[in-house]
């Protein structure tokens, strides 16, 4: 796998931020909150989580709206929202460069930014993308060309637990169930590397190293 790169606390005026790049794709995430929202948005027993995804151009397409929805529900379930009633947490994901694997990069970046923000979380998550070629070969973390020539392309998200727990799955192309299971095995193994990476980054950027 391409080794990812990450810089925490990259933005000054936010609770948490991360600049994350994987291969040639880079995104920047900021986390603001928990703060007091408008009365109409406030929920008395939990925090509201808002994830916005922005393209370089500013506006987003219908397809991006779906990616935003996936990020929203993946982030929301990871946060311990019951601990912050009547507040709002806003996560903004800004695309810097998209050369394939955008969804997995965005998800990993948002997880790093949430770690940086210090907001209580239930679990961490790591997203891994893989492509299946015509000869049933599985390529982890494929580049743009490999994605375009693949028959199937998956983005799978796992939590950092002992047993395998699939949080999110987004697929394109056609595939059989056994291929899916094979990919899940490989991606799960790769997700361990990403959790290790998280650990190293946090160690490096904390003052207690």
């Amino acid at each position: 796998m391409n080794s990812p790169q990450c810089k925490l606390g990259y933005l000054g005026n936010t609770e948490g931020s991360a600049f994350f790049s994987q291969g040639k794709t880079a995104v920047c995430v900021s986390v603001v909150g928990p703060f007091e929202p408008k009365a109409s948005k406030s929920m008395y027993d939990r925090a509201t989580v808002d994830v916005t995804f922005r393209r370089k151009t500013g506006s987003i397409s219908v397809h991006d709206k779906m990616l935003e929805g996936i990020m929203q529900s993946t982030c929301e379930i990871a946060l311990n929202v019951e601990q912050y009633p009547r507040t709002s947490i806003v996560v903004t994901v800004q695309e810097m460069q998209d050369r394939g694997n955008l969804l997995s990069t965005c998800l990993n970046a948002s997880c790093m930014a949430l770690i940086d923000s210090g907001i209580a979380m239930h679990h961490l998550y790591a997203a891994v993308s893989c492509a299946v070629t015509e000869s049933e070969e599985i390529i982890l973390d494929p580049d743009e060309l490999q994605i375009n020539s693949s028959v199937a392309y998956f983005t799978l998200v796992f939590s950092n637990s002992e047993t395998r727990r699939l949080l999110t799955s987004h697929t394109t192309g056609e595939f059989s169930h056994s291929t899916y299971v094979h990919c899940m095995d490989k991606c799960f193994a790769a997700s361990k590397e990403i959790f290790n990476f998280y650990k190293n980054i946090v160690k490096k950027s904390s003052i207690f190293n």
Binding site: I70, S159, R164, R165, L166, S169, T171, T172, F175
Partner: peptide, 21 residues
């Protein structure tokens, strides 16, 4: 009926392998 075209799970709670099967 035989091939899968999408297995879409947009976040939320986790799911076990046997449940997917």
């Amino acid at each position: 009926g035989s091939l899968l075209y999408s297995l879409h799970k947009p976040g939320g709670d986790f799911i076990k392998d046997s449940q997917i099967q």
